[in-house]
Design a protein around this nucleic acid. Sequence first.
DNA 1: TCTGGGGTCCTAGGACCC
DNA 2: TCTGGGGTCCTAGGACCC
Length: 403
Amino acid sequence: MVIIVKYDGKKLIFHIDANSAFLSWSAVEILKENSDLDIRNIPSIIAGDPENRRGIVLAKSTLAKEKNVITGETIQSALTKCPELQIFRPNYEVYKKYSKQMGEILLNYSPNIEQYSIDEYFIEYVPLLGPYLDVAKNIQDEIYNKLGFTVNIGISTNKVLAKMASDFEKPNKIHTLFLEEIETKLWPLPIENLFLCGNKSSKKLRKIGIDTIGKLAKSDESLITYHLKSQGKILHNYANGIDDSIIEKRDKNKYHSNSVTTSKDIDDLETAYKILLAIAENVSNKLRESKCKAHTITIQVKLNTFQTFTHCKSLSIPTNLTKEIYEISCELLCNYWDLTPIRLLGISLSNLVEDENLQLDFFSMDLIKQSNIDNSIDNILNKFGKDINISRGSTINLSKNFK
DNA sequence: TCTGGGGTCCTAGGACCC
DNA sequence: TCTGGGGTCCTAGGACCC
C-alpha cells in the first residue's frame, strides 16, 4: 500500500540505490554471456578469493540472505550457514560500467545529480516530469528495462531522510520518509540503522540507554555531544530528520589509494619493495588519469597481528611520477618497519592539485623523461586493461636500490 | 568474528610563526 | 632565550560509508 503524503512545494530529493549491486550486476553480465543462470535466483554471493586471504562476502542474493549470510563475513562462515552457496568473483570493471550507465539514465530525470557511491545516486526531483511517485516508478522501470537490474528509491526533503527511506524494504521498492512520517517509520528502528551511527557510536549510545532512533531524537543534545562530541550533534540531528547538506557533483577525488592483502605475509624488504612498486604504479596511474598531482604520500601497513599504522611524507612540489612515489614509499617503510610480518601494504595520495595549474619551472629533463615513461605505460594500461602485469625495464633496478 | 578495498571527514598533538 | 595566545600546517590515528 502506498500512503499518499501531501507535497507542499518543497524541494524533493530521491536516493536511488541499486539492489545488491555487485550481485545484480554480475548476474546481468552472466546472463549476457548466453547463460540461462540468473545468480539472483539461487543462494549466491560475490566474494574475494580465500586463497589470497580476500575471502569475504561483498554481496549476497536474497536466498543467501534468508540463510543469514551477511556482508563482510568470511566465505568459510557463509558456507557453514549455507553449504549450497555458489560463489562468484567480483569484476570491478563491469561494476564501473553499470554504475556509469545508471548515472546516465538518471541524468534524463534531473540535472542536479550526485553520485554518492558506486551504486547510489542522489537526484533532485523535477516537478515538471509529473507526480513524484510516478517519476520514481519511471526511473525504476527505465533502469530495469535498459540495464536489467532493480533499484530502491527513497524520497524526502533532504538527503539523509531520502537515504534512510531507500533502505527500507527491498528490493525494487519506492519509499517516502517525510518529516511528518519519521515518528512512525524512523523512530522505532534500532539505533544501528541510523546513517553514520556505526559500531562505536551505537555501543556508546546503548550504554546510556539509547537503543532506538526515537530515543536518540528525544534525548538531550548536550548529553549526546558529551559522549560523542561533534559526531553526536550530527546523529542527534539525523534522528530528528534534520540535514541541510546539498546535492553536489563530486567531479574530483580528494584522495587516491591502492592496497593489497598479500597471499602470504611479507617479512623481507625486497618483497615489500616489489609490492610497493606494483601499488605505486597503480595509484600513480589513477592520479595521472584524473590529471592531478599529490603533495602527500602515505603508506599503510597492516601487520599479521592486524595492527595497522600509516606514515606520510609531504612534498613542497607535488608529483604524479611512479618512480618518485615508489621511492618515497620505500623510504617510509624502511624507516618505520621492524620486519614484523606484513599482511597488507597500501599507498595513498592526498593533498591533490590539478596538473595544469602547476608551474613547470622545476621540470628537469629527468622528470620529463620519467613522465614520458609513465605516459607510455598509461597508454598500454588503457589499451590492454589494468589487470595485466606490466613491469618496466627499471623495475628490478628500482627494487635493488632499496636493499 | 580469523576479518577487502576505496573513499570521506574529523580529532589531537606538535611544530612553527607572528 | 623567559613567558602568552592564536593561527596554520603537518602527522597519525580513528570512525564511518559502500
